[in-house]
Write a protein that binds this DNA or RNA. Structure first.
Lengths: 352, 352
DNA sequence: TCGATTTTTGTAATCGATTACATCTTGTCA
DNA sequence: TGACAAGATGTAATCGATTACAAAAATCGA
């Protein structure tokens, strides 16, 4: 019975409120959208009717008429990765402040899921799109860009596209990581990669190589293990690492998860960190400080990344003329924690 | 310039396609929605026009006319917790299969964020709502239930509400956890709680007490530390734990994160796990197997939980008559890993 | 108090689809 | 071949808001 009451409440339309208040629908609409355009007396009248009836405007109708949905799509590679959870928090907070909503589209690491979001975007569901997967989603012969909706790339810039991006200093960070390891005396380095071809991966690997080189290491001093940004990739790299004769003593994971997977695997094999091997990650996720020892890593300003991206898309959605290829690059912070230390060679000589 | 071409593509309406194909808008609509109702020749004609023009129906207009959005809202306490990420994957997969979309509404552990989702729901944005926060969101004097939209609770049942729920056997699981610890010889137990008042927390704590009692322990053998389902709660509990004179030897965290926080903190304090203290968690998140030692925990079938919840809401949205208070309870699995072992007392006698 | 100006309100068109109903084809069978 | 049913298509109403434009009311100065 209370059930049916709710139902009835749900059916209130603007016309009902207008009748109740003795005004036209136009006036009701104005009271709700532009109160300053209506006489205080009328305003009170209408607001009272709104309250009495429990009216809430139908946003679908409004969206149709105004041709905007006040909603932004955020495409992420996956939801399980806490990196994106943090970025999304920043986006959400920022967009909410401006009255926008956010729809999260997870690709679940599966490229054919792009189709769905292409369709939704093409069907005018969103006023803007935030891309965190480093590419413009497509479906068959159709691309999301056909929708003519503003887009902004976060986390990973999109090559060959005139799209503003908000990213971190991946290259510089990885360079610093390599230098950090070499500075500790490590002469043979390992690199656990992200997915080959991925923009971020490319940047980080290049940076790492550059850093090693700048620190005086030859290219062959760096071993690269093919991986992805997940725990399992680190474990796989460890398997390969363990059966090397001349093992690297400093290993850098292109993500915290892969570094943690590596860490776990080599410790299970009896190696000590950082005494035998130093390990570094990239991301600065919360987990990273709960492994043992706490993971040395490059911390991304994830929340701020999301905020900045959101501000960028808000700008794109408001003003028409845009540079449309601006790029913001936020700095990283090297968190020197427990998994990195002096190289065994250096350490023993020190101890002697 | 290509820009303007996209723009123009975007403006195609059903009337344009109809003109191009030389039929009425009704026919175009039917070709797209109910192809069997249209002659093959006409069908081909229209499809060709659709392809040539790059037409995609405007879903906002469609939603208005059909009075459904084919979208479900999923309210989660927060996004950072991987538990919800996994549940959401299950939901997403299942809903997508049925042509539904999902909007994720994160409360970010902040109750006043409920208002936003209440408004969206009241404004007819969703055909159904999945609640994972154990309560029906409200905003001022308005409740989400007024929208008259089907709702299903996942993860945490909602007390005193006629809402179907899909949960796990929290109570039975925690009971088993307590028995497991006592079975290993632990006579003093610790319990790191979730937020007091939370449905899940209540279930788990009751279960834990019951288990301890059934195993022959008096109530006072169980110490409860007030906490939340996050790392920091475990660390706080550890601080309290460390300054007890007669410490528990078996500690159960109501979440993996709190257990991991505890683990980290007591190991930093020099205690050995499981030799000095056994630790258990609840959730079975991926990270739990990467700490050292791997965390013994109760694994939730998170993905399946999401799937089941999605199926339930799909049912609620299709058929009108519903039991509306059915409850599905999925079983947990005790993963016996490295953080639990014989109690010190028991172990030393064994070794002797 | 009157007319001009400004504010407030109302009427009706509009957003872009779906769909009830009417109309026109096509097909079947005597 | 013609009558009738079944099938395909078209016309126009509809979903529920916003808003351009017109009309009415309030304000103001002389």
């Amino acid at each position: 019975m209370s059930r049916s009451r709710w139902r009835s409440v749900k059916e209130i339309r603007i016309a009902d409120v207008a009748r109740l208040a003795g005004v036209s629908t136009a006036t009701v609409s104005r009271v709700l959208a532009t109160p300053e355009q209506v006489r205080p007396k009328t305003h009170a009248l209408v607001m009272d009717a709104v309250r009495r009836s429990g009216y809430t405007p139908n946003s679908v109708a409004r969206n149709l008429r105004t041709r905007r949905t006040m909603t932004v799509l955020a495409v992420v590679p996956n939801l399980a990765n806490p990196v994106f959870a943090q970025i999304l928090r920043g986006i959400d907070d920022e967009l909410t402040q401006s009255g926008y909503g956010i729809v999260i589209g997870s690709l679940d690491n599966c490229q054919d899921r792009e189709a769905r979001y292409v369709d939704l975007t093409l069907s005018q569901q969103f006023d803007g799109v935030l891309l965190m997967n480093g590419r413009i989603p497509e479906s068959g012969r159709r691309s999301m860009s056909e929708a003519g909706v503003p887009m902004v790339a976060i986390c990973a810039a999109i090559p060959n596209a005139q799209i503003p991006s908000v990213v971190v200093q991946d290259r510089e960070g990885s360079r610093e990581a390599a230098r950090h390891l070499v500075g500790l005396g490590h002469r043979r380095l390992g690199y656990i990669s992200g997915p080959t071809g991925n923009v971020i991966e490319t940047e980080r690997f290049q940076g790492f190589l550059e850093g090693a080189q700048q620190a005086g290491l030859p290219r062959r001093a760096v071993t690269r293990w093919e991986g992805r940004f997940v725990f399992a990739a680190g474990e796989a790299a460890a398997a390969s690492f363990l059966q090397m004769k001349n093992r690297p003593t400093g290993v850098f994971g292109a993500s915290d998860e892969s570094a943690i997977g590596f860490l776990k695997a080599i410790r299970s094999a009896g190696l000590r960190v950082p005494n035998d091997v130093s390990v570094m990650g990239f991301d600065g996720i919360e987990f990273a400080s709960y492994v043992e020892p706490a993971l040395t890593t490059l911390q991304q300003p994830l929340y701020q990344l999301g905020q900045a991206g959101a501000r960028e898309i808000l700008r794109s959605m408001s003003s028409k003329p845009r540079p449309s290829d601006s790029q913001v690059r936020l700095p990283l912070q090297l968190l020197h924690r427990g998994t990195t230390g002096l190289a065994p060679s250096r350490r023993s000589s020190t101890l002697k």
